[in-house]
Write a protein that binds this DNA or RNA. Structure first.
Lengths: 240, 240
DNA sequence: GCAATTACTGACTCGCGATTCAGAAACCCC
DNA sequence: GGGGTTTCTGAATCGCGAGTCAGTAATTGC
């Protein structure tokens, strides 16, 4: 019998495929298993997709588009900030001025959005990172990583140039730190049932990273924020 | 003709295999390509190894053994340190006492050794991380990662308990930060021709991370160290 | 009711790469 | 210089899973 199937077979296949991909990787996932999970036969798959890669390709396109949108938005936000407020100086940081607060808040918001994106596509990320060897998607993961390392590194560089950031650390090490952590967290997410408290993660990362990257002037205690525990939103981003 | 081959065919095969594995992943590497790179025929492979997995298994075993040796040595070093010097207090850190210096140096040395290990096995690490999906080695990578996250997290915890470390960051986030960075760096290494300055990397990471994890007491400038640039060895590790 | 349409089935084909194995080929020692 | 040993060759075999396609069943339109 054919009929008594899911009226929305295509969507069901996508969902089943995502699960199989996470479990087995792109190559390891077998079409028969995917269709079987929907109560369909192997052949039915080809009524909806040209191939396994085509299905994954759709997911990847969506992820790539979302990633690029977020990336350019974050770039634009930074541009606008510096256009409006001028460059951050060391005294902004040590004195914790209004604009510095603003800056930190912007970075914080951006980072949470990045983590949200990771969560939404955690399965795709996991497959791209470690389950796409030998496929057309193999290089994409590292391309995206490099791009992100660069973006973070450039933000960092900009602050270094105006002495708003310690000068004795190469930007690419800083970038690897941020991105490496995000990648590892995404891997963890792909094995989680429920969405973790991403804001808390971002907050913790910021506390660790930002304060470590303050210029070592008078090591002043900023008058400031961060006792960071129960408040829902408080922290910042990486660069400061 | 058989004879005029490399007198040490086995070693040559291992070397060629490592290259192919990095390039294509465990599954993607074809035995014919590996043997061809040594001027041998497909069949010759099976005179030296039972299978592709057996060859990789040997590499993995060596890596695992080295990793576990280093891990237990680092654990032991910490045990001994705390047995000899007692726990670190907040004032050790803010005052930058002798024992704190010692502690930092120990962690620094350990971290460099970890990076050295990564370098020596950078190909194996890269394959384990993203080229072993669907093989018997699939889970090993994350097992090792988890183990390392735990070790780092416990060191961090110990310092938190004695207030020698900020209390407002979960140890597992801290662990992910360190290990995620190491993993990303290992991936980069696997695509490098020459060995990078690992001590410089470790140094940079420490500067970023350690100072960010100081207890936020009087935010005192430690009298101290770190201008960190030309000196060959100066920094510390993660936890402090 | 029956022809056209849609949604699916599952046996079959096909290519790829691992693994086998019946021989060479080189070497060694007497 | 021949028997024995070691090392290697490459055609043949095998298994696996993607992709094909002729056929089947529910459904819809008339």
């Amino acid at each position: 019998m054919a009929r008594p199937a899911d009226p929305n077979a295509r969507a069901a296949l996508v969902a089943a495929a995502r699960e199989e991909f996470v479990r087995k990787g792109l190559k390891g996932a077998r079409i028969e298993d995917i269709t079987a999970a929907c109560g369909l036969s192997k052949g039915a798959f080809y009524l909806h997709f040209a191939s396994k890669e085509a299905l994954f390709g759709e997911l990847v396109e969506a992820f790539k588009a979302a990633t690029e949108r977020l990336r350019s938005e974050r770039l634009e936000v930074m541009e606008r900030f510096f256009a409006e407020h001028g460059p951050l100086e060391a005294r902004d940081v040590t004195g914790c001025t209004e604009r510095y607060e603003r800056f930190v808040a912007l970075q914080a918001e951006g980072d949470v959005r990045t983590l949200e994106l990771m969560w939404a596509y955690r399965d795709v990320v996991a497959v791209l990172m470690s389950g796409s060897r030998g496929t057309e998607f193999e290089s994409l993961a590292w391309w995206l990583v490099e791009q992100e390392v660069e973006r973070v590194g450039e933000d960092f560089n900009r602050l270094q140039r105006t002495h708003a950031c310690r000068p004795d650390v190469p930007a690419e090490v800083f970038g690897s730190l941020i991105v490496g952590t995000h990648v590892l967290l995404a891997q963890r997410m792909s094995r989680m049932e429920r969405k973790p408290d991403l804001e808390a993660w971002a907050r913790s990362l910021h506390l660790l990273i930002r304060e470590g990257s303050l210029p070592k002037k008078k090591s002043s205690r900023r008058p400031t924020r961060a006792r960071a525990s129960s408040r829902t939103r408080s922290t910042s981003r990486s660069q400061p």
